[in-house]
């Protein structure tokens, strides 16, 4: 917003505990915050969970979809940890719901941990649970 000066996007997420970060090679710069050089969000694997950290809005939703789809998941349940997600908009929530539907088609259940009360409310208001069943759980301690 020009009237308020240039504001940088979120600070980079810590990476010391990351086992594996999932990158999008197709278009890595598509949603970088202006002037920050830092992607608004990161996706990485940690102790079997897919962890989403940062800010997911409509301009990063396509990249998020590609990253989630290419995430190496197996087993009957996949855990998506949103405990470090600062902000998720409608497009971001729909992207997660579509991923859940993709997983469901492979008989894999998606468990979402650490979702904010607002995200859950959004999920209900938009009836995203009808797009794909998702189990919400508390944040990882």
């Amino acid at each position: 917003m020009r009237a308020h000066g240039s504001l940088s996007d979120i600070p980079p997420a810590g990476t010391s505990d990351h086992i594996c970060r999932v990158d999008d090679a197709e278009d890595p710069a598509v949603d970088r915050a202006p002037g920050s050089g830092v992607p608004p969000f990161q996706v990485f694997l940690d102790e079997g969970r897919v962890v989403l950290a940062g800010t997911i809005d409509t301009f990063g939703a396509d990249r998020l979809a590609r990253v989630l789809t290419s995430s190496p998941v197996d087993g009957r349940v996949v855990v998506l940890d949103l405990g470090r997600a600062d902000f998720v908009d409608v497009a971001g929530a729909r992207t997660i719901a579509r991923w859940a539907r993709e997983l469901g088609a492979r008989s894999i259940e998606l468990e979402v941990r650490g979702a904010s009360a607002l995200l859950r409310r959004m999920w209900h208001s938009l009836a995203l649970d009808r797009l794909a069943p998702v189990r919400f759980a508390a944040a990882v301690a």
Binding site: M1, H4, L7, P40, F59, F87
Partner: peptide
Amino acid sequence: LRGIYGPADLPATRRT
């Protein structure tokens, strides 16, 4: 209070 936003200003807009 007024501000103008464009495509690059969405994060700043929501923060403001």
